[in-house]
Design a protein around this nucleic acid. Sequence first.
RNA 1: GGCGCCUUGGCGGAGUAGUUACGCAGCGGUCUGCAAAACCGUGUACACGGGUGCAAAUCCCGUAGGUGCCUCCA
Length: 467
Amino acid sequence: MKLYNTLTKSVEVITPLQSPAVTLYTCGPTVYDFPHVGNWFTFIRYDVLVRALKANHLQPKWVMNITDVGHLVSDADEGEDKLEKGARREGKTAWDIAKFYGDYFIQGLNRLNILQPDFLPKATEHIDEQIRLVKTLEEKGFTYAISDGVYFDTSKFPKYAEFAGLDLDEQQAGARVEYNPEKRNATDFALWKFSPKDEKRDMEWDSPWGKGFPGWHIECSAMSMKYLGETLDIHSGGIDHIPVHHSNEIAQSEAATGKPFANYWMHANHITVNGEKISKSLGNGITLEDIEAKGSSLEAFRLHVLESHYRNQSKFSWESLDAAQNRLKNWQAAAVLRYQTASSSSGGTTFTATEIQTQLTELLGDDLNTPRALVLLSGIFGQLESTGLHSAHVAEFETLLVFIDSLLGLTLAAQADIDDDLKQLISARESARSKQDWTKSDELRDQLTSQGIGLRDTEQGAIWFRL
RNA sequence: GGCGCCUUGGCGGAGUAGUUACGCAGCGGUCUGCAAAACCGUGUACACGGGUGCAAAUCCCGUAGGUGCCUCCA
């Protein structure tokens, strides 16, 4: 299993600390609003990673956090907590917001056929762990307190800028945003924030430094260490997190333990819509509901995600989603050929499932090359559609479909046979046709169409497919 | 202002030196009772200008446009 490692900027073979177990931490959502397609792209990328690891004989132990406190509107540790802001927007408490959008997120995982992580820890349920980690950092001299919180002193972690390849001096010279002048360094970040003196927050806890709430970054370190140990194999997240969030995670974790935090870093690139990034301010945050309202399926959306490589910036458009929907329909039409092999015993496509499985596993194992995997599959399904499935290969085909579904999260094997009523309509049409009763045969065809079943007349008889 | 990345046929999207990528859509034809599907055929694609090479979409330099991070954000 090979993966591009942001740490070394090269594709590397994954060698877990305790193979075949592989520990994986993926940055999860901040649950203050509906996720948009860009967010879901990344979560599907994680899912593909997990499935690829499994296919390549590794056993992932997967943790994805739920950020339900402490993520401020600005990464510069200023501004409002997103949860509190969401609460004000909807006239609820921050706890209500976290519950509602947290539940929505988990439903979204299911709707997109994303595997459930082994752990989905919430930041608010790990306050003690976070406080303990800050204490450790304090004891080791990495922290200092100012009026609004306890901060990490990045100047005491000399390789801070290495991970993101930043030139801190240059950046500061041209920085557009001013930072809290009490901070010792621009890159210092909050470990613990104090509650405002004149305001009662929905979410706040006591700590050795005063009442407040944890900084956004510390949760990931605390929770990954709790569930996966001080050094994890793979840490994954959105590409935007390289400069701030992940640099901070590395700094605070390695400062606390003296050990490497993660051996492999996998970053999913972003997508654009109409050539622009997705952001709240642009108002182009398409949701899963928008996709369904347009008549597309979430499975087609998933296939659309797989059509591009996770390291490239890819584009989302309704046109490309339609293309994926059509491609999926063709695949589904091929999948149901296994119910229609009665007269193709002599001809039809034959193949060996294990051979194709090996190829697919290698493609996914080569830095998650999903575009190439789809090319392979389109070739196979295309051949099936043109020549039919050999009747002796139904079981082989079924095995392959189950494997494809497990690797790519599709539901091809689940494509069911049609019921007897529909089958009778088809055979009634066949006999009408043999009697050249075109009126009746067209009428029956219309009936089938209205029930979502299309037909193609071949030399071996009518083949049905779902419209 | 600093540091990056990108630019492939109608749309999406692989490909880092020499092979038709591929998908979706389109066009012409065959087949068909009519359709549909399928099949056959069909697009002088690699932003522009130089350079290196026997050979460049692929490497180097420059130009133009776009875009990302340094605010929000997967």
